[in-house]
C-alpha cells in the first residue's frame, strides 16, 4: 500500500510503526501528517529527536533518565532523603509514585525483572550497582516496588534475600483493597491477599 510513496517516507513509516501502540496504518497517518504540515514541523521533530539523542542518558546512580550525562534531578536534589531507596521495574513507574507525593527518597530502576525462562538473570539487572549504592550511600531502607506479578514477586523475593544480608531494612509495597474501592467488586485473589496482609489499628 505504501509502495507508491517516496522511499524516505516509506522508511519513516517503518520506523514509526515500531513505537508501542502504533501499527502500520497509524504510522502512515503520522508520516503523512508530518509531511503535510511542512518543513517547520519536520524540523521541530528532528531537532527534538537530535537533542534527545545527544543530551538524554541513563543516570549513573539510579539508572533513571538524566540530562547531559550527569545525575538525574532526583539523585542531584539535596532535598531528597538519602537513606531510603525505592526499587522500581521501569522509568514509567516513577512519575506515578512521584505524583502520589508520599515518597521522598531516591530510586533505583531495574529496567527488567528476573525471568529464568526469558534468560534474564541477576546480572542483567545490574544488581552490583544496587548493592554499591546501598553500601556507599548508607541506605537504611529499601522499598521494593516491583509489580505484583509472578516475575515482579520473584524479583522482590530475590532482592530481599540479597539486601537483608547487607543489614538493610527491606520493605515491600502493600497489596490489597484500592482506596475508594468497594469490597463487593474486588477480585478475589486481591481480596484474599488483603486479608493475609491486614494490619492492626
Amino acid at each position: 500500500m505504501a509502495d507508491i510513496l517516496p522511499k524516505p517516507l516509506q522508511r519513516l513509516i517503518l520506523v514509526l510503526a515500531k513505537l508501542p501502540g502504533v501499527g502500520s496504518r497509524t504510522a502512515m497517518r503520522y508520516a503523512l501528517h508530518l509531511v503535510r504540515e511542512g518543513s517547520d514541523r519536520l524540523e521541530e521533530l528532528s531537532a527534538a529527536l537530535d537533542e534527545t539523542r545527544r543530551e538524554v542518558s541513563l543516570c549513573p546512580s539510579c539508572f533513571g533518565m538524566s540530562e547531559g550525562g550527569g545525575l538525574c534531578p532526583i539523585c542531584a536534589s539535596p532535598e531528597r532523603r538519602g537513606e531510603t531507596l525505592c526499587v522500581v521495574e521501569g522509568i514509567g513507574d516513577m512519575p506515578p509514585i512521584e505524583s502520589a507525593a508520599q515518597y521522598a527518597g531516591r530510586y533505583f530502576v531495574l529496567h527488567k525483572l528476573l525471568s529464568p525462562l526469558k534468560g534474564v538473570g541477576p546480572q542483567e539487572l545490574h544488581l552490583d550497582r544496587l548493592l554499591d549504592t546501598v553500601r556507599d550511600h548508607g541506605i537504611a531502607e529499601v522499598v521494593l516496588a516491583t509489580p505484583l506479578t509472578t516475575d515482579g514477586e520473584a524479583t522482590a523475593t530475590y532482592l530481599s534475600r540479597l539486601l537483608t544480608q547487607e543489614g538493610v531494612r527491606v520493605t515491600r509495597l502493600a497489596a490489597g483493597v484500592p482506596v475508594g474501592g468497594a469490597i463487593e467488586y474486588l477480585d478475589r485473589l486481591t481480596l484474599s491477599r488483603a486479608f493475609q496482609d491486614r494490619k492492626e489499628l
Partner: peptide
C-alpha cells in the same frame, strides 16, 4: 509459570552455568 522458571534454573545449573544459589532459593520460596 514459576515451575517452568525453576526448571529452567535447574537446567542452567546442570549445564554448568551457575546462577547464584540465592536465585534458586528465591524461586523455591515463591
Amino acid at each position: 509459570r514459576l515451575l517452568r522458571d525453576r526448571n529452567q534454573l535447574l537446567r542452567d545449573f546442570g549445564s554448568g552455568r551457575h546462577p547464584p544459589e540465592e536465585l534458586l532459593a528465591s524461586y523455591e520460596g515463591e
